[in-house]
């Protein structure tokens, strides 16, 4: 497993994409922005570029020639991508906290960078994962359709949730509360977000393995 991770980070993933979480995370400093976009940049930029690089370098055939199982190939690749997702989330959280320090009295029209919002972001990434990986592993190299479907699904979730946050005073009150008034609710949303992220990512992993076992290399 270590060798597969090393391969992806040394040969496949351009170091630039390890810097992207810092750059996109810094967008959390834009006051009152639609902060879902910060993580969507990962889906829009990092995913297509990283998978295009794997494809153009014939990574699939290269890896298949190594003494590794197909299951480990999927596991390692998903660990790399989920690791990058969590790195994006981590920097979004750091810059979100700085945002709160910089603009303590800001009135947010869209979702504020709160714990509740973080939970929603994790659900968005969970949806991305559960759509992207099973479609991608039907071929293990064509990433276009998988990216379009998964990014559309993630954006749809973000749009509907953000719309609910604007249209519903209750949702806005709970998620946008930058004080401690709705901390219990927000923590619940975060915990649910973590659980959904874990569950859907594991489901994506299992579905991806099933698909990949059928692929003719």
């Amino acid at each position: 497993m270590y060798n597969l991770l090393l391969k992806d980070f040394k040969l496949g993933v351009n170091p630039w994409f390890l810097a992207m979480p810092v750059l996109t995370g810094a967008l959390m400093l834009v006051p009152g922005w639609i902060y879902f976009l910060v993580l969507l940049y990962f889906c829009w930029i990092t995913i297509p570029n990283v998978f295009a690089s794997f494809r153009s370098q014939n990574d699939l055939l290269f890896t298949s020639m190594m003494p590794v199982t197909r299951k480990d190939m999927v596991k390692a690749r998903m660990l790399v991508i989920v690791g990058l997702e969590l790195l994006h989330v981590a920097f979004a959280v750091i810059f979100g906290a700085i945002n709160r320090l910089l603009y303590p009295d800001f009135v947010y029209y869209f979702f504020a960078p709160t714990l509740g919002f973080l939970g929603l972001c994790l659900v968005m990434l969970a949806i991305f994962n559960v759509v992207f990986f099973p479609i991608y592993y039907k071929t293990a190299y064509k990433h276009g359709n998988a990216a379009i479907a998964s990014i559309s699904a993630a954006m749809l979730f973000a749009a509907v949730t953000q719309w609910a946050g604007i249209a519903s005073a209750d949702v806005s009150r709970v998620i946008n509360d930058t004080g401690t008034g709705h901390l219990a609710w927000q923590t619940s949303v975060l915990v649910a977000g973590i659980a959904i992220f874990a569950a859907l990512t594991i489901l994506a992993y299992r579905m991806a393995i099933r698909q990949f076992q059928k692929v003719e290399l």
Partner: peptide, 19 residues
């Protein structure tokens, strides 16, 4: 079929040998 053509031999070998 070529693999990782933009990488140096040394870098590719460093990865391959771990397998």
């Amino acid at each position: 079929v070529d693999f990782y053509t933009r990488s140096k031999i040394s870098k590719l070998t460093e990865v391959i040998k771990t397998f």
